[in-house]
């Protein structure tokens, strides 16, 4: 009977360990300085690794949104708002989610494999013996890089999605470029930009802490590394969806307060 609940206990205790690891990281961050060079190297790596896929996916997201909205909006003669609506949707919801999944699949898996390999080949032990802190030297630069890069990538994805939307707007929906762009500033409000940035930040933090933690606590040789990579993929996807729900709720409440205060 207890066996049915075992997975839930595992999830709870694993979540506890991830949170604990997060605070350990913050503690190290507070006390010690992070090497700029290491951090920039990682930011560069993460951004370069993911920019092509992000750009491609961003383009098609814009295209999909345009096609979907066109079908609904044609009947109301509201095609003029096409650009504004699909951009708003992308920045608030689809963009951050897309970036998070992109990073989870590529950078998350890569990071946990990299740290996992260093763990099982005793490199992390060696770092400690050589007088350095592996959290400071390895984990934090990667963590920070993932969070910062996610904003770059969000921007890139957004630009490409507007581009994709414009292109499809013109050739599929018959909306010319000026018309497509015209309502973007009016519909895309400050709250939706803030909400998008906030989501992007939360997803990146969740993803970064899970993949570094999984890699860092790998056990059991080459097989263990494989296990860590799979676990990273699964738990980040689930965690991001949950985080999406939580941030949507938060953003909603914040928006209501914002509107009331006006």
């Amino acid at each position: 009977m207890m066996a049915i609940f075992q997975p839930f206990f595992n999830i709870i205790s694993e979540t506890g360990r991830v949170v604990q690891f997060f605070f350990q990281m913050l503690d190290v961050w507070k006390r010690k300085s992070i090497s700029r060079d290491l951090m920039f190297e990682q930011i560069w790596k993460v951004t370069v690794q993911s920019s092509a896929t992000t750009a491609l996916a961003g383009f098609f997201v814009g295209a999909i949104m345009t096609v979907q909205f066109t079908m609904e909006m044609k009947d109301f003669g509201a095609l003029g708002y096409l650009g504004g609506l699909s951009t708003s949707g992308t920045i608030r919801e689809v963009g951050p989610l897309l970036i998070a999944f992109m990073l989870a699949g590529k950078v998350g898996a890569f990071t946990s494999a990299e740290l996992g390999t260093m763990r099982v080949t005793e490199q992390i032990d060696a770092i400690r013996c050589l007088g350095a802190d592996p959290i400071q030297e390895l984990v934090l630069p990667r963590f920070i890089a993932i969070v910062i890069s996610s904003f770059f990538l969000l921007g890139l994805g957004l630009l490409l999605s507007i581009f994709g939307g414009m292109l499809l707007g013109k050739y599929f929906s018959g909306v010319n470029y000026e018309e497509y762009l015209r309502h973007i500033p009016t519909i895309v409000s400050l709250p939706s930009i803030l909400s998008g940035l906030f989501k992007c930040f939360v997803f990146a933090v969740v993803l970064a802490v899970i993949c570094t933690h999984r890699g860092y606590s790998t056990t059991g040789g080459a097989k263990g590394v494989g296990r860590s990579v799979v676990q990273t993929a699964v738990s980040t996807m689930v965690a991001i969806v949950i985080a999406d729900w939580a941030t949507s709720l938060l953003a909603d409440i914040a928006l209501k307060i914002f509107l009331r205060s006006r």
Partner: peptide, 9 residues
């Protein structure tokens, strides 16, 4: 300490 793996970076 010298590790079982060379543990080089």
């Amino acid at each position: 300490m010298v590790f079982q793996h060379p543990a080089l970076f």
